[in-house]
């Protein structure tokens, strides 16, 4: 996996990172950030559950950038590092993760890794804990997390090293509405 950018920054004076590289395509960039802000701004599915899925994707997909970013909305909803530490193989046995979070993790694993993991029991658990609207939003989220991680990695935008960083949760820009 390359940590040398395969695309240059399109913003003068800024290093190559996801935003500065995506700026090569301003319309794609604007539509992505509008979508991502709308997704995170929706409370149909709690930000904590979205972040649990995002953390799992980061680990399975090997996205170091994603793995070291935390969104503040989920942190405020109690997603501390002791819980994040359990989002690893064997999470089924965690005493810190809730049953709903484990159902979300199983769905995430099925989507990003192996659809066979979503067997009848896992499917029933997901539907017991989440409404259809919440599952739709989760499906969108995992789709975006996976695609974003793979785009980052294949464009060589993985950091050599990165501190854990809490960022403001993406939000809808009022001017874009």
């Amino acid at each position: 996996m390359s940590t040398i950018p395969r695309v240059s920054s399109a913003i003068a004076g800024e290093p190559a990172h996801f935003g500065s590289v995506l700026a090569h395509q301003p319309e794609i960039s604007a539509s992505f950030f509008a979508l991502y802000g709308r997704f995170w701004g929706s409370d149909v599915l709690a930000a904590r559950l979205k972040e649990v899925a995002r953390m799992r994707n980061a680990r399975v997909t090997e996205c170091g950038f994603c793995r070291n970013v935390r969104f503040d909305k989920a942190v405020a909803q109690g997603l501390g590092e002791e819980v994040v530490d359990d989002i690893t193989d064997g999470y089924e046995a965690s005493a810190r993760l809730t049953d709903a979070e484990k159902a979300v993790l199983k769905f995430t694993d099925a989507l990003i890794h192996d659809p066979e993991l979503l067997n009848r029991d896992a499917r029933a658990a997901l539907q017991r804990h989440l409404t259809p609207a919440q599952i739709a939003e989760l499906g969108l989220g995992v789709t975006l997390f996976l695609a974003l991680a793979k785009a980052l990695i294949t464009m060589g935008l993985e950091p050599d090293a990165m501190e854990r960083t809490v960022l403001p949760t993406p939000a809808v820009l009022e001017a874009a509405e």
Binding site: L22, H24, I28, F32, A147, A151, M155
Partner: peptide
């Protein structure tokens, strides 16, 4: 390449 990366990943 940026567009290609997004389209393929999606």
């Amino acid at each position: 390449f940026v567009a290609f990366s997004v389209v393929a990943a999606l």
